[in-house]
Design a protein around this nucleic acid. Structure first.
Lengths: 107, 107
DNA sequence: CGTGTAAGGAATTCTGACACG
DNA sequence: CGTGTAAGGAATTCTGACACG
């Protein structure tokens, strides 16, 4: 396994919201709102505190840019869905590739 | 530039002590004590909260193992100093290597 | 020496809501 | 729609200290 995306630390949800504010320049209100609109998906700690990954921070900076460009959260939501579609077609290709590699000798 | 160590997110100090506890299994007391003994060096946020990097977390797990083996913090402190010496000799070599590369054509 | 703990205070985060537009 | 804010509470983190060993 191991595609171009791995990096381990990039996806670990360990950053609390205050630090994310410093990193992104966004307010807590904004960050929570983007979650409500399903643009980001922080983990929750035992007692309910939001934890973000570096990847989430990057996503938030993208969101901040798009919002500045006048886009609405609903439009950003669509973009995300499309990326998910992209991903699954990539996955399909990967699986097809593996199958090909696996059965090649039998042809 | 750019040695084998880069990884960007690995060294960013963004994790608060509670999360570090979860990640390492150590108590806050232990983590603060290892700082007092100069084995780790968290950053401080505006209002004085400690922030750790993933690299710090790894260091702490090493420390935890060594402590279990019965080592003292003073001994671990020495190990760290030695690593710093290693690093500067590596740096020396890198610089020497670059100088060599730079002046090779003149020889 | 290394770590637990109670103490008191300050800062963090959470939720639900009202406000403006 | 997106975001600010005051409200009240719960959880987090901080420091300095006493304790045991």
């Amino acid at each position: 396994m191991g595609s171009s995306v791995d990096n381990s630390y990039m996806y670990k949800k360990v950053i609390s919201i205050g630090t994310v504010c410093e990193l992104t320049g966004l307010s807590e209100r904004q960050i929570r709102y983007y979650e409500e609109r399903e643009l980001i998906f922080p983990k929750r700690s035992e007692k309910g505190n939001r934890k973000y990954s570096f990847s989430d921070v990057e996503t938030l900076m993208d969101i901040a840019n798009k919002m500045e460009d006048g886009l609405q959260t609903s439009e950003l939501r669509r973009e995300i869905k499309n990326k998910e579609v992209d991903k699954s077609s990539v996955n399909e290709r990967m699986i097809r590739g593996q199958l090909n590699a696996h059965f090649r000798r039998r042809d």
